[in-house]
Design a protein around this nucleic acid. Structure first.
Lengths: 228, 228
DNA sequence: TCTATACTTCAACTATAATCGAAATATAAA
DNA sequence: TTTATATTTCGATTATAGTTGAAGTATAGA
């Protein structure tokens, strides 16, 4: 006689290692095919198919058919937020192989969290903008100061455009590896997109880590006073 | 080879109906004994004991021994936040009995969410304070205006005392029944406590609903312009 | 048309988690 | 000390979810 909305239904979808690994893989905000997801969670395509259909049925992910491929994506940012909440509370994974420990290091260094920047780089960037008085932290959001408005505009980011989007503008997202807040929301996404455009960062294949390019190293130093 | 902190470990604890029911019951922020929790989730004491020890081991709840009773409590507000995030995303429960549907109605009307007010009353209260310009919503937090500071002080709430507490001061908490934000954090807790002190609301036994007293009906009308 | 690839469906197997009766422990009260 | 209550531990049962091999469907390309 559960009185509450059925928490267990959704939680049991996340409570299985293969499925949670797939969802974590989708946290980079990009599309992935069924076979990619099967490989990442080390199960056969049959098993992946079984799990993916459960996740679709539970409205945690979406599918798009393109030819013989099926592209999967997180259903919405509520789901991403739910998973990130978990990451902040869950025990760290046991490290088994050298490769894995390197991947963990890469992810800790810099990664995407749904659609904005996280990891050491994400936190350093956020702190840098706080120090420079571009942002002010107010509980669970960051407020853009007057100085900040000038800065973002100069840096090539259209704030009015971002504010029009029907989503959180600048919320503080808790970082599971750094245990610090970093900038999320439309503004966080705007910055991430701009860093890709400027070629300051590139994707690391198969995991959601990003790598800082030489140009990026220079840029982050000059504009944000961050030494990589 | 999961690279991320192990989401599945925590999620699988929540992914079982008896356990999630217990955790939902603990969302009223109060202590409950093992037998109470067993009764609420309609399982035998043996089974409850089994589940509770798993939840303690997983750091989702705490125990305190007092005589032959064991008092359980949510471990921290991160756990409460996680569960509320779930409630916002999970499908609504199937209604089976008249009693249950009445309980759902009571919960929708007014309930505690961890340690602050939620449900229709919680949302109405928050909206009232927004309309009166005591609060201003900024993304995921509420900011207390100058007018608001005056109001809260006059109403008998010590803001400086609340701000000293090492917790979020006034975050916006998404309401699963109303699908609207209501006031949480230390300020939300301060208000709830004060309503109890003023005898405006009383606990409804065995569920986390609260009932508005006659005095409360008058008070909410006069001070917050809310008709119950 | 034929072949390779991406993915799903079906059926069978296996492992494991939830459940509860019975018995044990621990405390409170009489 | 005895009795009642709260809770845990143990052992056995049952149900179910995850897994994969085999076979089928759908699409792309030669």
């Amino acid at each position: 006689m559960s009185i509450n909305p059925n928490v267990a239904v959704v939680a049991s979808l996340l409570g299985e290692t293969s499925r949670s690994t797939m969802l974590s893989s989708l946290m980079d905000g990009r599309f992935h095919t069924a076979s990619e997801l099967a490989f990442m969670s080390a199960i056969t395509p049959q098993t992946a198919s079984f799990h993916l259909s459960k996740l679709v049925e539970g409205n945690l992910i979406n599918v798009e058919k393109h030819g013989r491929h099926r592209y999967y994506q997180l259903a919405n940012k509520e789901v991403a937020h739910l998973i990130e909440t978990f990451l902040a509370i869950s025990p760290p994974p046991e490290v088994r192989s050298l490769k894995q420990s390197n991947q963990v290091k890469l992810l800790q260094e810099a990664r995407t969290c749904y659609d904005h920047l996280a990891g050491k780089l994400g936190v350093a960037l956020t702190n840098s903008m706080l120090n420079a008085n571009y942002l002010k932290k107010e509980d669970r959001v960051f407020i853009v100061t007057l100085k900040g408005e000038q800065f973002f505009t100069d840096f090539g980011i259209d704030l009015t455009e971002l504010k029009r989007k029907r989503r959180s503008f600048s919320h503080a997202c808790l970082d599971w590896s750094e245990r610090h807040y970093h900038l999320g929301g439309a503004l966080g996404n705007g910055l991430l997109t701009h860093f890709f455009e400027l070629n300051w960062i590139v994707h690391v294949p198969s995991i959601r880590a990003v790598k800082v390019t030489d140009r990026g190293r220079e840029g982050f130093k000059q504009i944000f006073n961050i030494n990589m």
